[in-house]
Design a protein around this nucleic acid. Structure first.
Lengths: 248, 248
DNA sequence: TTTTATGGTTGACTTGGATCAAGCGAACGC
DNA sequence: GCGTTCGCTTGATCCAAGTCAACCATAAAA
């Protein structure tokens, strides 16, 4: 839909220029709560739009940080590498979510961000964002909320990794995905996974075989229908029950 | 040293008033990088100092958020509760560190902060902090770095919980404590744990028996000397080696 | 001083998920 | 169209950490 018309540079440019002010993700993304006039000022700042092909890096751990990225379309994973070769997926990000917040701390990115499907991102130069948020209170506050939300999300993952068993983790993961797809206007009950079993396992602190077995078991029990990456949730409450089941 | 002189209200007041400008934690805490004049403006904002007794809550999950807290002295833990009764320690905080950042997101605290020893905190009203950081670029930027650092820290914990075995987790934990004590001018090799084995276990996603066994094993192998909560690190490199050992 | 409570250690046994291994199915390049 | 590759599933076995249980140490209460 945001496709370039090679024969008409005018049209193409006007579409490319399309910034926050008429992005349909503005209620999920940074522009949330801004007035029209404020939105236009944010537009000026979000100059760079970039396409990232499936499998390509948006940034790599160690690179200098100078911008955060809003996902306009597509799907990403972030992962951290340990010196000894072990790595862990720290999150999956979809349209409207921000990438790169971890880089502010040291002015270098601390993880890799990799596109799991062809994606489009908006680069937001960080120092300019700080500048603008010194002038626009709403933007400042919303940005703080987004960072804080990331911290809360991480605590949720810590909870998951620290206290839940394999099937609970996977149930929580599916419900979380479902809820985020819903917020973007997609079906809550049917979606395609963009990541492999191994990536899911890495995120959930499990081996891919365990993830696969859990999927099979959920299917046997009628909670979901799995066909490779295509998931249909048949019984949301069943999954929810799985999660809160085992008191320790 | 920051004790009140009951006979001399003048002195006592002047000591109480002692704010960021001559706090010896200012290089670790929010004031980092501020000029003298800026520091004084921050002082105005950090009006409330509070003592929290060991075992008491600084705040509870669900309470309305309106301030973040800087630890002036003492030691805290934060934990999250699941509906089914399971809980997990999400962090241990010491002098100079900030508490409450998770509350910005929803305007309610999402975890409990509990003092593990008698402590003293500075309350920083959040809306006023936002106001001041709109005026003081350095403060704004430093605050963003602190939030980002928290995100990076959480990724580290996720890594630990997702990919490390029990002994690696405990080694990482001890090294992290040691490093933070060092930054505060304490011995890197000898310290008292403020938390129980159960709390360590909760943080590391292990049972208290496993933590206890790992301590014993570290002692047998000559890496540390343990006597209840008193820890002496005898071989830092031994611990570090334990951490990076097992490539998966 | 003894008593009680709380936290820590250690041992015996169990188990959930890892590991190893084989086989299958869909997608892609040739 | 066919082989190759990659990702997924499933089974058999193993082991790290959990569970259960007994006991010890320290500190506070009586």
């Amino acid at each position: 839909m945001a496709q370039t018309h090679p024969l008409n540079q005018e049209v193409s440019l006007s579409i490319i220029k399309t910034a926050c002010s008429n992005c349909n993700l503005r209620e999920l993304c940074l522009p949330y709560g801004l007035s029209l006039e404020e939105l236009e000022r944010l537009d000026d700042l979000v100059s760079t739009r970039r396409r990232i092909k499936r499998g390509d890096h948006l940034y790599r751990a160690g690179e200098v940080f100078d911008a955060i990225y809003a996902i306009r379309s597509g799907f990403f994973k972030t992962d951290v590498l340990l010196e000894d070769g072990r790595d862990q997926v720290t999150g999956f990000q979809m349209a409207g979510e921000l990438l790169g917040l971890d880089g502010i701390s040291t002015e270098h990115h601390t993880c890799n961000a990799i596109a799991l499907e062809d994606s489009e991102i908006c680069a937001i130069p960080f120092s300019r964002l700080e500048g603008l948020s010194r002038e626009i209170h709403t933007l400042q506050h919303h940005f703080h909320k987004v960072m804080s939300r990331e911290i809360v999300r991480d605590h949720g993952v810590m909870m998951l990794l620290g206290t839940m068993r394999a099937e609970e983790r996977l149930a929580a993961f599916l419900l979380n995905l479902s809820q985020r797809f819903t917020a973007r206007g997609f079906s809550h009950a049917e979606f395609y996974l963009r990541m492999t079993r191994e990536e899911i396992g890495s995120y959930l602190g499990l081996k891919l075989e365990t993830v696969s077995r859990a999927f099979s078991r959920f299917q046997e029990e009628g909670h979901i229908a799995v066909q490779q990456k295509h998931i249909r949730i048949l019984n949301v409450n069943g999954l929810k029950a799985l999660m809160n089941h085992r008191a320790s």
